[in-house]
Every structure is written in C-alpha cells, then in structure tokens.
Design a binder for these strands. Structure first.
Lengths: 121, 121
DNA sequence: AATTAAATAGTAATCATTACTAGTTGGAAG
DNA sequence: CTTCCAACTAGTAATGATTACTATTTAATT
C-alpha cells in the first residue's frame, strides 16, 4: 500500500473524528483539503484502510456503512435512529441498560481468516 | 403484526436453516412453498421479523445482509470469503484462534433504544 | 356479514457502492 | 538523479441490493 496525499488525509479524518462518518461524510471533509478528490477514491481508500486494519467499519442497521477509528472500544447502536454511542467501560455483568439507553440484545463477532482462506496463495 | 401465510413460511425458513441465507436465498426457498411470492414481500417480512426480534441480521462484510435464527450464539466471519461460522462455545480468554480460524479482531455491539428515542410516543 | 388496516404481487425507482478508463505518481532500482 | 511501472487518482458510467408504489387481497375485530 503506497502513501498518497488522498489516503493520508482520509486516514487523518477518521482518526480525528468522533462522529462515525459515512463515506459521503468523509468525502465532504476530504474536499476541504482536496477540493477535487473523487468519491470513488474515498470509497477505495476506506476499503483498503479497513483491510489493513487501520480503521474499522460499523454496520448501524441503515443502508450505509460508517467508519471509525481503530481504537479498542465498543458500541451501542440505536435500532430506531441508528445513533452510535462509544462504549469504553463495557460491563457484561449488567447490560440491560448502558447509561440511559435500553439494551435489547447484543452481538459479538470475531473477524479473521478462515481455515480454507489461509491455505490459498 | 398480523399472521400471514407468507410471514409464517419466511420465519420457518430462517428457523430451520443453518445456512445464514441472504434475502434472495430466503426468496428461493419460499417459492418452493408459494411459487408467486414477491421478493418485496420477503424483504418486508425479513425487516418486520427482525424488528420484532424474531430473527437476526448479520452483516458479513459483503454487499448483502444475511439472516439468522434468534438463538443465543455468536459468529466468526471470514474477511476474505465472508463465510459465517456459528460459535456456541466462545471463550474470551483466548480468542487468537477459533478452531482453525485465525481471529484478527472482534466487535461487540449492544443494540437497543437510545435515551432520546425512548421519549418519543 | 361488514369493515378496515395491514399485507401482498408485481413493477418501477432509488442510491450506496463498485467498475471502468485514461492519465498521474510514489518509490524502488539502477 | 533518471527510468520505470505498478499502484493510484479523477471523472463518469454501471451495478444491484433494497425500498417505494399501486391496485388488490386478507386477517381478524366488531
């Protein structure tokens, strides 16, 4: 992965934001620095940065993905308005509520490379 | 939520399958029972069943969502081929591997209704 | 049996994301 | 420093999963 002006700016936007931006939001912020940056470039870099484990994707239940810093924390996601709240103090012994948010269920996903894909190439 | 033939069959397909079907896969299985069922009906019912917490959605990193039984278990998802593996014996003390799958990172999401949305109606 | 809101089939529309193309550039190797 | 080329970019077109729409049907209550 080469270091380009576009990629560095996109990574910086994600790392310095606490807004859980979607691709278009990143695009808008990136245009402040590079006015003619292409939306396709933003998508391509968000994907490659995610593959390189430099940023994270969040599926919030809406039709668009959101992007997040690569920092150890968890999320509460509202199933009505799709708001994302960062969690730094998760206590699994009592998760019926988190602060004043009502928790209905939780999901744990391990991500990685499966046995078959490890064998390839 | 009314009980319809279509909705009951869709719920039954999800509950009796271990394949983590996507919407089109559910549609294909549903057509075996109701040949002229509409794809829109499948999408609409998958959404309403999920809102009613009768089934679960899984985001596997691909461009389509997948649907799962509402049963307490977790998932390993391969970031290369998007394979989903059910986990019934998650041990958080050692998650560098799960069986022979290499775990790169994990995500925990609490889902529910945020403080603001609880106030509404 | 009448009523009506919710659901359906079939089709059209949306729009987030990806693909494509011609031109540009990072950075490795001489 | 120059050459070189795979990786990258801007701009635009295409894709396709999902949702919206409309006329008709139906669950289930009174």
């Amino acid at each position: 992965m080469r270091s380009t002006k576009q990629r560095n700016i996109i990574l910086d936007i994600i790392n310095s934001s606490y807004e859980h931006l979607d691709a278009y939001g990143v695009y808008e912020k990136a245009r402040e620095k590079i006015p003619n940056i292409s939306l396709g470039t933003v998508y391509r870099n968000l994907n490659s940065l995610e593959n390189a484990h430099l940023i994270n994707v969040i599926f919030d239940g809406s039709d668009k993905l959101r992007y997040d810093r690569n920092e150890n924390h968890q999320h509460f996601i509202c199933t009505k308005c799709h708001k994302i709240i960062d969690i730094y103090d998760l206590d699994f012994k009592n998760v019926k509520t988190y602060q004043n948010n009502l928790v209905m269920n939780y999901k744990i996903v391990l991500e990685g490379i499966c046995e078959e894909c490890q064998k390839e190439e």
